[in-house]
Amino acid sequence: MTIDLTDTTTGAIDQALTEARRRLGGMTLGMVLTLIIVTDEAAQYDAIRAANQAAREHPCRVLAVITRKPKADSRLDAEIRVGEASPGETIVLRMYGPLGQHADSVVAPLLVPDVPVVTWWPDEAPEIPAKHPLGALAQRRVTDSAASESPREVLAALAAGYQPGDTDFAWTRATPWRSLLAATLDQPHPAVTAGELAAEQDNPTADLIAAWLSLRLEVPASRTVSGGPGITEAEFTTMDGDIRITRYDGRTATLAWPGRTDRRVALHRRDTAELLAEELRRLDPDEVYAETLRHIDVSPPAELAAASEPATDEQFVSEPAAEFGE
């Protein structure tokens, strides 16, 4: 059921929720977290849809915060959806006028007691998520650097403003690739002397994986530009030749190992709902992300920015961190 409340207060919203719950026969007391989505009118539909899908794995209260018409008089409109597509509750909060600057005053009373809070910016990320009023309420803050115009700059900003609990979808997208790369090196293998990653020009995920490889393997890992989609190639240079994983269709990867038959491995690009579900699975600070993000920072993004024309030869190499250097 959907309840529309115009020019309302959090008290009235809370009451309407209780009433709705009673009418539906005691719904949704099993919520495991509150998910705040900071979005706008254009993007809210997709974001809420993804959140509702992720809520199948993590029943939650979704609070979508949309600020509108900053010049208008202060007003709060709410749209409450319960017992519909998702197992939890969804409240779309539209804030007009100066109220938009004080969204936390609306959101804080609506958090589910006793459970964690996650804030998600599906579009533009704030400069320092932890300092954002809605980010400060949360112990997990999820941004998506790839959604911005210049992902690399955003990633650099996120690195500078990192606080434990920050995470970015660019890192989430890396998980299947990282799993496969780790599984590849589980086999007895010749020593790896270098790594290389090819992806579209603006692909912060590839930047992160390259940084991760160079950090973990203590070898240089370069990042080259390809036509996509997404990441198309990862390569380990070894004494005995190159171990190469290629994926040109965004679905199936081929693992080529010197002296062996090529093997195919399913490697899907995942949709937003899956990424969000992965993020919600663990809510403690992701230290490996923090280290990787710090590491990416040492490589000058400017170098690549200079080579921003579609080209295939330019590379930028992230060197092993100083403490791991020779």
Binding site: A182, L185, D186, Q187, R216, L217, V288
Partner: peptide, 21 residues
Amino acid sequence: VDPDNPLRDPRDRRIPRVAGP
């Protein structure tokens, strides 16, 4: 699966336990 694999880190909970070859 391989404790010596530098890409595996016990703190890295995103990478699942994958069976070896």
